[in-house]
């Protein structure tokens, strides 16, 4: 029991006629970084809301560190960054994170918190005058302020640019390395793939796959990108990101790749016709979440 952070058993939840979750069983071990992956409407936010005690499950039971979610939240063991949250005027970044610190029994020191969340240079600025990505970092700082044992991040990187994302995940990882549990939801497979120890795939309110990133990727099988060469030279194709081998079949080129999506992106704009991607992570994801290959 002690090594379990979150346990969902047989969770079902309806909103009117919509079945958001349908018999979800999920156990999250302490110290793990778990991605909750699924397309929009898969039930990720509902699952997160139930773990946080914001939404009551229609059926089934949920515990966080063996307590009810509300009790765990009340005890300061949980920190969360909610999806689509905005900002309120008029407060400075420092005031917002100071508020969060003062609400938790054992908060991170202010300087360290500001540094960790990348807010040191923004501390005196007004929260409602920051860019989307910066404001998001403030909300990350808010979630992190209490040094919670469980950090829940619902679609955390939507407003961030690439550099901010990398920094963000680096921070999340070092936080998890200290034995904290991190659960994040995303609809981007590559994010789950790169940053989680374990990926839980949800579709239509059900768990459809659960495993390490390698295991989830293996479900995809081989990955190729094929297209018509139209006489264009193909000498540099082997150097494209992700490409393992280049095979030329007449005018048709078939690339075998570790990362079909990246390879595909690198080919974009070069005017190749008849582009066909098979077994990409996205395709695997699609087949997992819709139950059919395409």
């Amino acid at each position: 029991m002690n090594d379990v952070a979150v346990r969902l058993s047989g969770i079902g939840r309806r909103f009117g006629a919509v079945r958001a979750l349908d018999g979800l069983d999920l156990t999250i071990e302490r110290g793990s970084v778990v991605a909750l992956l699924g397309p929009n409407g898969a039930g990720k936010t509902t699952a997160v809301s139930i773990m946080l005690g914001l939404t009551s499950p229609g059926t089934g039971t949920v515990t966080v560190f063996g307590q009810t979610p509300a009790a765990a939240v009340r005890a300061g063991r949980v920190g969360a960054m909610m999806q689509d949250a905005g900002v309120v005027p008029v407060a400075t970044v420092r005031e917002v994170v100071e508020l969060a610190r003062s609400l938790y029994p054992d908060p991170l020191p202010l300087d360290r918190l500001l540094h960790t969340a990348g807010l040191t240079d923004l501390a005196g600025r007004r929260w409602d005058r920051l860019s989307g990505g910066e404001a998001q970092r403030v909300r990350f700082g808010f979630a992190l302020a209490g040094a919670p044992e469980l950090l829940v991040l619902d679609e955390p990187t939507t407003a961030m640019d690439v550099a901010a994302r990398d920094l963000f995940w680096e921070t999340v990882h070092s936080y998890a390395a200290d034995g904290h549990t991190v659960l994040f939801s995303t609809h981007q497979l590559h994010e789950a793939d790169r940053f989680a120890d374990r990926i839980v795939v949800l579709a239509a309110g059900r768990l459809v796959a659960d495993g390490s990133p390698a295991e989830i990727r293996a479900l995809a099988g081989g990955r190729t990108v094929a297209f018509d060469r139209d006489g264009t030279p193909a000498d540099d194709l082997a150097g494209l990101p992700g490409v393992r081998s280049v095979e030329i079949r007449g005018d048709r080129v078939v690339l075998t790749t570790d990362d079909a999506d990246t390879t595909d992106a690198a080919l974009a704009g070069r005017g190749f016709r008849g582009l066909e991607v098979t077994g990409s992570l996205d395709a695997a994801f699609k087949s997992l979440t819709t139950g059919k290959d395409d």
Partner: peptide, 18 residues
């Protein structure tokens, strides 16, 4: 009303503040 719409009250509900 604005604070509710901005998700601020929801954010406070996942802190120990009752």
């Amino acid at each position: 009303s604005q604070e509710r719409a901005a998700g601020w009250l929801r954010q406070l509900r996942v802190t120990p503040l009752p």
